[in-house]
Design a binder for these strands. Structure first.
Length: 724
DNA sequence: CGCAACAGTTTTCAT
DNA sequence: AACTGTTGCG
């Protein structure tokens, strides 16, 4: 069996998973253990060897990128197209179900998808219209609440609560849902919830898909939430084969509803399931794996897994204690330059941080050193303001009742429809339970608006109507071109000056060509091209614009690094309060999730891992003195190599706010230099942060590893330079 | 309506 | 510190 081409290059465990019989299976796949490979080979095996039609296979992923990569690799392996196989994200698949059965779920044929930005605006409007205090009821929180409930599968009417706060939130939820339903809008959570209700309540539909999908494979299963798991349960009837692939140690999305427990739940629900552990790692050196294993071992309730490698130990992990965040950045830049000078590619280097705010200092240092870099996770194409404006017009052309769209562009560009007028329209709509469009039309027809406002509203209505009428047989490209010019959007941004406005104009033109090049998925041929495009824009917000091809250092959060690998990785800001983050430190569950995030970060590294932390860090304009992260003490000391501070910091370059002279001055006055490691009889080891005064009475500030920051009088403190 | 000053906020992210 | 969104004024 090991000679079969589909399994010949695999290790024993991988081969077992790929060629397994038809039975439920859990593949516990450690970081770098060839998880995607197994999934891809399994699908190919089912088709080629077991003669399953691609039509009868369903594969679910979390990102569009993962989905298209998987499809591509399966096709490459098989040498043929698997176009009629369903591979997609939960949301993409739910969307398909809803489009196919829109009548069964009570949606208009041209329903639109609301992204989280749209959703937040809508919720905000509603809170205002309910005369609630916006300070006490932040839209974001209400949005969070609504999505959380939907993720749990709960409609407003299912919520029973005597808590007055939650009662209000429930009312907002109700009003929001009513408003969405009236406007034909579906948010991301709603896609899943509705599709779930469809499968649950409609026997015919459910049995149809159960009959169709003989094999169901789910990737990144540790990231599924309640409704997604319920979905899988419904789709797998008596004899469908479910394969789940995941890693409980890499579950880092609990904060947005992901339930690691679903893995255990799966084992309970499918008692015949076979568990396969992939523990051989093909990515990292022995040292990195040893340290990562040692960190994750501190978590409880793991399903248990130990990564090992046949490769060599590699070099120890570098640990650098920076004086502050500028020094941290400076050190990193130095190491990157060294890497590059030794022939390393910049794109092989990743800088990881816990929160986006930390990227700025790193960027400045990279800019300063003229090292090109690329940041992951900025605004993506379809999320840009000007693009969303244009899309809103397109949405109105498709569906006049789209309140979110009309709110966005009724006065963009300004056409004399001010807040006054808008409020009258909103009020009318609310009172008569109509959409904004209907209310506006009615007000114009019944001449209930003052002259100027009436003209303005009438011409807006006219604009949308004529655009729709006169572009009926236009291609998508022509239509979008027509829309951005007729609406005045293009002219508006062209009139603005500055670099920002120029890119906006470019983006609008880019949108036109995106429309021109858009090819509809064949499975969506029952949709109008416009609706297909709008759904595409909402579900796949598009890559952020970046010069992907340039050799550049990669900057990203630890979260967005999941699934990637780099020869050289810097894990930065590894301090208590930053990583683990402050908010996570009081809740044990959250702390374990941070630890998994640390594990994810470390296992991104193939050859070199550098961990840095700063004694002093400025966050939101305030200085903090954090202790070293506990995660570092969880690593085996012999896997780490502490970079000597003295040699690095005593001659600081004059970069940023760093004071060149301070170190010398401090030394003359206290006998110790800033950044120096010292030992105190009682407090242990620490780092010199600051000083005050002269002579033996001078005081110095030290951040002790164990007890935190303290001011000590030099004469009494009996400090010694630390050797460790 | 448009501008400017002001106040309030800030994890992590895909869909 | 930097950004957003709101408010108040001309």
């Amino acid at each position: 069996m090991s000679t079969h081409p589909l399994i010949s290059g695999l290790n024993e465990k991988q081969a077992t998973a790929v060629s397994a019989d038809d039975r439920p299976m859990l593949v516990l796949a450690g970081a770098g253990s060839g998880k995607t490979r197994v999934l891809v080979h399994r699908i190919a095996w089912l088709i080629q060897e077991r003669r399953y039609s691609p039509y009868s296979i369903l594969a679910v992923t979390f990102t569009n990128k993962a989905a298209s990569e998987m499809r591509g690799r399966v096709e490459q392996l098989l040498g043929s197209s698997v176009r009629n196989m369903w591979i997609g994200t939960f949301h993409g698949l739910a969307h398909r179900l809803l489009r196919a059965h829109y009548m069964d779920v009570g949606l208009p044929q041209n329903f639109q998808i609301l992204d989280s930005d749209d959703q937040q605006r809508l919720v905000k409007r509603l809170i205002k219209s309910m005369n609630l205090d916006e300070k006490r009821w932040p839209a974001k929180q209400a949005q969070w609440y609504i999505n959380g409930k939907k993720d749990e599968g709960l409609r407003a009417q299912h919520i029973e609560t005597f808590d007055p706060t939650e009662q209000t939130l429930k009312q907002i939820y109700e009003a929001y849902q009513e408003s969405c339903d009236r406007a034909g809008l579906v948010d991301f959570a709603e896609l899943l919830l509705r599709a779930h209700e469809l499968l649950r309540d409609n026997k015919t539909v459910r049995e149809h898909y159960q009959k169709r999908f003989r094999h169901i494979l789910v990737d990144e299963f540790q990231d599924t939430n309640s409704i997604q798991y319920a979905w899988i349960r419904l789709l797998s009837g008596q004899d469908n084969i479910v394969t789940i692939v995941g890693d409980d140690d890499q579950s880092i999305y609990g904060w947005r509803g992901a339930r690691v427990e679903n893995i255990q739940q799966f084992l309970d629900d499918y008692p015949a399931a076979m568990t396969i552990r992939l523990e051989q790692n093909y990515r990292s050196t022995g040292n990195i794996l040893r340290a990562a294993n040692s960190v994750i071992a501190n978590n409880s309730d793991r399903l248990g897994k130990d990564l090992w490698t046949e490769g060599n130990e590699g070099e120890p992990i570098s640990l650098y204690a920076a004086f502050n965040e500028m020094d941290e950045a400076r050190y990193i830049v130095g190491r990157i330059e060294e890497w590059r000078d030794q022939g390393g590619a910049l794109q092989d280097v990743a800088l990881l941080y816990r929160s986006n705010a930390q990227s700025r200092v790193l960027e400045e240092a990279l800019l300063h050193a003229r090292l090109p870099y690329r940041i992951y996770g900025g605004l993506r194409f379809f999320e840009r303001q000007e693009i969303k404006d244009a899309l809103a017009y397109l949405r109105l052309v498709s569906n006049r009742d789209d309140d979110a769209a009309i709110e966005r562009v009724i006065n963009t560009p300004t056409r004399g429809i001010g807040n006054r007028t808008l409020d009258i329209i909103r009020q009318t709509a609310r009172e008569q339970k109509k959409s904004l469009w209907q209310a506006a039309t009615q007000l114009v027809d019944e001449k209930q608006l003052a002259g100027r406002a009436r003209n303005a509203v009438a011409s807006f209505i006219e604009l949308i109507n004529t655009t729709d009428d006169e572009t009926e047989d236009f291609t998508l490209g022509r239509l979008s071109n027509e829309v951005i010019s007729r609406s005045g959007l293009l002219a508006m941004y062209e009139a603005e000056k500055g670099e920002k406005a120029e890119t906006r104009v470019e983006n609008l033109k880019e949108l036109v060509s995106a429309c021109e090049n858009f090819t509809q998925d064949e499975t969506e041929e029952d949709l109008t091209p416009l609706n297909a495009f709008l759904a595409h824009a909402a579900l796949e917000a598009g890559e952020e614009q970046a010069d992907e091809y340039q050799d550049a250092v990669q900057l990203m959060t630890l979260h967005s690094a999941k699934g990637l690998e780099f020869p050289m990785v810097f894990m930065t800001g590894v301090e208590e309060g930053v990583f683990p983050s402050q908010q996570s430190m009081d809740e044990p569950g959250r702390l374990e999730e941070e630890r998994r995030l640390c594990y994810v970060g470390m296992t991104r590294a193939m050859q070199k891992l550098v961990i840095t932390y700063a004694e002093q860090r400025r966050i939101y304009g305030q200085d903090f003195f954090h202790k070293v992260s506990r995660f570092i003490s969880e690593m085996p000391a012999d896997a780490l190599h502490e970079v000597r501070l003295q040699t690095q910091v005593q001659k600081p370059t004059s970069y940023g706010r760093f004071n060149t002279g301070a170190s010398h001055e401090a030394f003359e006055q206290t006998g110790f230099s800033l950044g120096q490691r010292v030992r105190h009889a009682k407090f242990g080891d620490g780092t010199v942060l600051n000083y005050e005064g002269t002579g033996p009475q001078s005081r110095i500030q030290i951040n002790f590893d164990q007890v935190g920051t303290k001011w000590l009088v030099v004469a009494y403190a009996k400090l010694e330079p630390s050797v460790s």
